[in-house]
Simulated assay, not measured.
Amino acid sequence: MAQPKIFLVSPAFHGYWRTIERSLTKRGYQVITHVYDAPGTLLERLRNKALHDLPEYLRPARFENLVTEQALTRFREVNPDIVLVVKGDQLGSSWWDAVSTSEVRLVTWMYDEFRRMRYSDKNFDLNLLGEIASYSPGDVANLTARGYKATEVPLAYDTDIDIIPVQGSEITFVGARYPGREAMLLALHQAGVPVKAFGKQWSRHWWDMARTRNFKNPGIASGRDLDRPHAYGVMAGSPATLNIHGDQDGFTMRTFEASGVGGLQIVDRVEVERYYDPGKEVLVYGSEEELIEVCQRIFADPQWAHTIRVAGQKRTLSEHTFDQRVKMLEDLWT
C-alpha cells in the first residue's frame, strides 16, 4: 500500500518545519515540504520582509501573489492526499480556494493568535482553513463557539536539534526585550541575583545596537542573539532560565524547550499546570518578590533545583515533543 502523501506548507520560522517533517515521516507518511517564505535572492528577502512587517495597506499585492503562485505550483506538482499548513497567513485567497475545493484533507496549525495574523472572518471565510489546530485556548473556544472546526494542539520541544552546551552561573533569559521583562530582570539584578539576557535587543554589540536602534543599556549582563542550538545550550547550562510571556494566551515553544533541554524553568503563568506540575517540574511566580525568592532558593538549595530540572525534562520527553503533537494533528485528518 502506498504511503499517504502529505504536502507540508510552512514558514521558515527557526527551522521547526524540519522537525515536523521528520515526525510525519516517522508516522509513515511521504512528506514533501514547501517553505513559503524561504530566504532566497535579495528581492525575495525584501519581499518576505514586506509581507511580515508592513501594515496591510502597504504590502505590495504582487509580493503576496508571488508567494501564493509558488505554493500553488508546488501543490499541483505534488498532488498530495493531505495538506498541512503551518500558519499560512501570507498565502492569498487563490491558494485557499484551490486547496479547499480539491479532494485533499486540509489542516492548518497556528502557533500565534488570530488577532496577530492576517486572517479575519470579515473578509475571509475561515472554513477555507479546513480543520484548525491552534496553540491558543482562547482562539479555539472563540472559533468553536462560532461554528468553526477548531482543536487545541499545543506547541512542543524539538528533540532532533543538536544542543551546544554553554555553561553559565547566571539565571538566563532568551528572548525579545520588552519593558515588563526588562523591569523584572533589573529587579533580580538589584536584589543581587546574577542574571543575563540574550537577544539582539539586549546586546551591547555595536552592530546589534545599530540595527535595532536600541542604545539604552539594560543595566544587566547581556549577550547577542542566539541560534537554537546555542539558545538550548544556554538554557540547559544555567542555574535556571526564565520564561516571561507577553500577551499570549497560549504557551510558546519556549515553555517546552526550556524544560526539554534539561533546564530549570521559571515561568510567569500558573496556567502552565495544564502541562507541568508547578513546584515539582517547573517553578512559577506571580510577583517580583516571589521571583526573587525563587531565584535565591535555587542558589541556596541546588539539590532541590536539580530534582525539579530532571522531572521537568522527563515530563517533556514523554508528553511534549513534536512526535506527540503530530499524533494529535493526525487525528484531524484521519
Rank of each mutant, 00 (worst) to 15 (best):
R105T: 15
V99I: 12
W95E: 00
T101P: 07
G88Y: 02
T108E: 01
T108I: 03
T108A: 00
V99E: 09
Y119M: 06
G92P: 00
R115L: 11
S93A: 12
S120V: 02
R105A: 15
V86N: 02
W96E: 07
M117L: 11
G88E: 03
S100L: 01
L91C: 08
D112H: 02
E103I: 08
M110F: 15
V104G: 06
W109S: 09
Y111W: 14
R116T: 12
R105S: 15
S120K: 06
E103Q: 15
S120T: 15
Q90K: 11
F114E: 08
D97K: 12
W95N: 00
S102M: 04
K87T: 12
Q90H: 14
V107D: 07
S102T: 05
R115G: 14
D97M: 02
V107H: 01
V86W: 05
V107M: 06
E103Y: 11
G88I: 01
E113W: 08
D97S: 11
M110H: 10
R105D: 14
S100M: 01
R116I: 11
A98Q: 09
G88R: 06
T108K: 00
S120C: 09
S93N: 09
L91Y: 10
W109V: 03
S100I: 00
S102R: 01
F114L: 14
T108P: 03
Y119H: 03
S102K: 04
E113Q: 14
K87E: 05
E103N: 12
V107F: 04
Y111Q: 11
W109N: 04
V86E: 11
M110W: 13
Y111C: 15
S93L: 09
V99C: 04
T108N: 04
V107I: 07
S94N: 12
R116N: 15
W95R: 00
T101M: 03
G88M: 01
R105E: 13
S93T: 10
M110T: 00
G92D: 03
S94G: 04
R118A: 13
M117E: 11
S100D: 05
E113K: 06
D112F: 07
T108W: 03
S93Y: 10
S94Y: 03
V86H: 07
K87C: 07
V99Y: 05
V107W: 02
D97I: 07
Y111V: 11
T101V: 08
D89Q: 09
S94V: 11
R118H: 14
E113L: 09
E103T: 14
Q90S: 12
W109C: 06
M110L: 13
D97Y: 10
R115Y: 14
G88T: 02
L106N: 05
S102Y: 03
W95G: 00
M110V: 02
K87D: 08
V99D: 08
S120F: 06
V104P: 05
R105V: 13
E103R: 13
S120Q: 08
R116D: 15
G92F: 01
K87L: 10
S93E: 10
D97E: 13
R116Q: 13
V104I: 06
E113D: 15
E103G: 13
R118M: 12
L106V: 06
R116A: 14
V107E: 01
R116P: 05
E113Y: 10
R116H: 15
D89V: 10
K87N: 13
L106T: 07
W96V: 12
G92K: 00
L106Y: 10
Y111R: 10
T101W: 07
R118T: 12
